[in-house]
Design a protein around this nucleic acid. Sequence first.
DNA 1: TCAAGTTGTCCAGCTATCTAGACAACTCGA
DNA 2: TCGAGTTGTCTAGATAGCTGGACAACTTGA
Lengths: 258, 258
Amino acid sequence: MGRVPKVMTAQSRSPSGYATWRLIAEELRREIVGGARAPGAKLPPEAELAERFGVHRNTVRQAVSALAAEHLVVSRRGSGTYVAEHTVLVHRIGARTRLSDSLGSRGDASRRLLASAVEPEPPAEVTERLSLGGGAGLRLETASSVDGLPISRGTHWFAADRVPGLAERFSDTGSITAALRAVGIDDYVRAATTVGARHATVAEAADLSLTAGSVVLVTRSLDTLMDGTPLQLGITRFVAARVELDVGHPDLELDGPA
Amino acid sequence: MGRVPKVMTAQSRSPSGYATWRLIAEELRREIVGGARAPGAKLPPEAELAERFGVHRNTVRQAVSALAAEHLVVSRRGSGTYVAEHTVLVHRIGARTRLSDSLGSRGDASRRLLASAVEPEPPAEVTERLSLGGGAGLRLETASSVDGLPISRGTHWFAADRVPGLAERFSDTGSITAALRAVGIDDYVRAATTVGARHATVAEAADLSLTAGSVVLVTRSLDTLMDGTPLQLGITRFVAARVELDVGHPDLELDGPA
DNA sequence: TCAAGTTGTCCAGCTATCTAGACAACTCGA
DNA sequence: TCGAGTTGTCTAGATAGCTGGACAACTTGA
């Protein structure tokens, strides 16, 4: 592979608005999370990386320390820098799958309530998609993490009068499904989900322990009761570096008879 | 909203590795593609934006010109800066939906073949998921655009001996579905799709007319014949700023009887 | 025990980026 | 027609980040 893209050749920085060390960090991160460098593997020495990217070793060091800050690599003086265990969480998006399920399959996962509030006048999108019609909205802010690393932040909207006491129930269980069951809603399905991606806002970067400008996956989903009544509008921001979404296609059989 | 995050306070650059003007550009882009600023709407004057972000007007100008470079805004001397028509393409991911469908619903959309090649030894992932078993792989590189703006880049793998002449057929129609039909494959379905997001590589940024460090949505999908034989492994990079993925959930009825 | 290899720390100089200010060019409503 | 408002262009200076080099601290294998 020799020299690699060569974007960062000139002295100091490329005029892209991105610091050279950031571009290098992102390239190395791609190699790691993409699987080209397995956990436990040793990274090439800084001197070698510096030569490969055509920059000074100090610049590589800054890139590596950024990766170390997000626990993707661990450096040992005198020995080398090693890829850390980093397991990417695969979250399945399906009509009946919940984030709790994806988290539950893992060892040290948690989901917790950060805040809840009754909003007399929710944003237009919420009023519309939940068919609130002037009623108040209940907003829940949640956070999830795996192995102590933040995975996602979620904003969940409900019709306030349909789910009395939901916030308290959620705190008990860490599961929205369980909390809904506790307030009398036994079943619901995912009606629609859209997926986008963008740079994290400053606030999101802080919340998710990311450096500014990291990438987040954003899902917007609508859950409905079995009779089609809209139940929950959820907006979830996932740390793109640590999460992959799996879009199930279980509707194969549905097409046969049609 | 007053002053906004204030990340970029100090002189020169913030210590995040991102130039101040880039952070501002990304914030403005979020406001625009997020819908807070409608197409045709006038942006606040540069002086006002400068005050809001706590930077000099020149810094705002650099951010705005970056947005202008991606055709998200248009500046008119003496008048102001306006949000351009930018329509986000919504691409539905379902068992039987094709990118051609999403593109087809739009006015000036195109899809074209960039390259095709028979690879005697495809990457391990391809060999495995397509069950090539030592056979050669056919690789197609495609690009799609809407209104002259690049939307995606795709890499499509097939078993070379199962789809003779596919590349030529694709060039004719701009549709993989049509090309497959032309070589005798009438029907197939999406078996699995995963979605991730990350910063674009340097090469991708160039291919998709993006500035370095922009965000791309990455889907990896496997299509199979109706009998389950793997047919196509596709890796598509979408411009996150211009595309939203819609995950259909058409399998509601499937769960009832189960 | 030693030497090669690797990461950690420090410092001086250069340069791109941001700040600051001024003025030109143009639009649009009064 | 005029003037307020807005974008376009230019110059100059300050500073943080990148470069380049040297050396210390530590690990590992011979």
